[in-house]
Amino acid sequence: MNLLRQLWRSSLGKKYAMALTGVALFGFVVGHLLGNLQVFGAPELINSYAHFLKSKPGLLWGARLGLLSCVALHIVAAVQLTLLNRSARPIGYAGGSAYGSAWKSRYMALSGSVILAFVIYHLLHFTAMQPGINGVGDFNKLKTTLAGEPVADVYAMMILGFQVPWVSLVYLIAQTLLFLHLSHGLSSLFQSLGFRNHVWWPRITAASQIVSVVVFIGYASIPVAVLAGLGRDHAQKAKAALSSQPLESPESSIAGVAKEALK
């Protein structure tokens, strides 16, 4: 406990916290991307993956709470460090400042704040499924069957969700800021934790750039592909389910279609 208190009290210790929680959150970003990319397969692929996650509430909530504590730690450390940094120079320069700094490094607080706002929107959009903010309707009504079991039709939800142009635009903007945040943060965390020398630094920065670009392309490809027509037929049928009242007869809905497809 004493060690933790000592760490938290020092500016270096807070940077370690930023770096380590950053690693954990980056791990989630990669895992989440791999899960989402299954949308490029058959609808059953991502639906069964989503069903698998939902069927393990212990695992799911364990991961969620772990991530939430990482997010909280990352934000609290960031806010405290930013306040410290601001107070360290009460009067600024008139002749320009931050000479020679990488521009992305100057906007970490801004990009981080936008990403936080996006994460809240994203959770309300696809996790809490608030009908008011998706521009489509009630995603709770999207159901399909997997091996005779009724499950949520995540595939249809994603396709219908991203067919709304402004929603896709919000996602693309957020991904651009995530790219900026990662392309500085990924390499900097090596610096904060002390894993750097003159041989490895160019490699670390290059690898961080490449990884950030790959993550950006991966995430951005989903709304772009949907706007370009991915899953259009499936979405047409799912849309009928949205406008109809609660599903009674399976034949009238996407569930029936999926059942046919599975046979």
């Binding site: 500016s11 460090l81 410290l84 360290a88 120079r89 000479y99 700094s101 490094s105 100057r106 904060s192």
Partner: peptide, 15 residues
């Protein structure tokens, strides 16, 4: 002393 924290901007090295 109240100095700020490092955000790896690279300004220090440059000047």
């Amino acid at each position: 002393e109240g100095f700020g924290a490092c955000t790896v901007t690279g300004s220090c090295e440059a000047v």
